[in-house]
Design a protein around this nucleic acid. Structure first.
Lengths: 129, 129
DNA sequence: CCTTGACCTTCCCATGATGGGAACCCCCAT
DNA sequence: ATGGGGGTTCCCATCATGGGAAGGTCAAGG
């Protein structure tokens, strides 16, 4: 399977597959005589794993750990859970931060007439302490 | 006022002040004979404006527009409001995306024993369709 | 007066994950 | 054999931020 086929089958772009390989997230693909990368079904499983982990917002470093645990038959599920919990907390922290921004802004937007006059509580808020 | 003083007084790092100047977000600072940048109270107001806008999550391009509107006595508050509303919606979209990730993960974490055995619904979810 | 240390200057590099594009090579079907 | 649609590597850009090097400036104290 060429990289384009693997990309379509896994949902990871060819560009990203090469990148993941270059940073050591995934093992270097087999090569044909021509130099083309050659992907197996097993490679596809890995690519799909990475894709799903990215969809859940895991960083590549975390996915690296998750892949190692996935391969390790002796793993402790506590390890996996720890990584996931840390990620959930990071997500929730970001959500709280952004929610606070959104709430503040929403309130300012609500106070703003939004007409053709210059008076604007949004700008006032940015300009004044 | 030197850049370090302006940084402390505005909450924007000296590094960032120079960067904002280099990308045209703020006007080039006055220079002393020595070449040192020299900041006035008026400059500080601008830096604080930028700082507060960043704290609300606005991108530099948006802050550029907001600064222009702030300077424009003939502005229509509708313009400011439009920018703020668009940003609020972008924030809320990101929040929804991250909340969905967090919810999914939280559920998986909840299903995971987190002990010294290898069985793990989190990895199962990443490995299976 | 000179030294010292804290500050300033510019310039380059790195982050994280992704895409765009150039220059060049390969493969298959007509 | 040729053309088009792959593949390969390499460089650049994003966005906002920080780190650090090499060298110039300033002010205080011996």
């Amino acid at each position: 399977m060429n990289i384009g086929d693997a990309a379509r089958a896994s949902g990871v772009s060819a560009k990203m597959i090469r990148y993941y390989e270059s940073v050591g997230l995934i093992a270097p693909a087999a090569r044909r005589a021509s130099g083309y990368r050659d992907y197996s079904e097993a490679d596809l499983h890995v690519l799909r794993f990475v894709r799903r982990a990215r969809d859940l917002g895991f960083a590549l470093a975390e996915i690296h750990e998750l892949l190692a645990l996935w391969r390790d038959r002796e793993r402790h599920s506590a390890e996996v859970r720890r990584i996931a919990e840390a990620h959930v907390e990071a997500l929730q922290q970001k959500i709280r931060d952004m929610q606070e921004m959104a709430d503040t802004l929403q309130e300012l937007v609500h106070c703003c007439q939004g007409d053709d006059r210059p008076d604007c509580p949004i700008l006032d808020r940015l300009a004044r302490p």
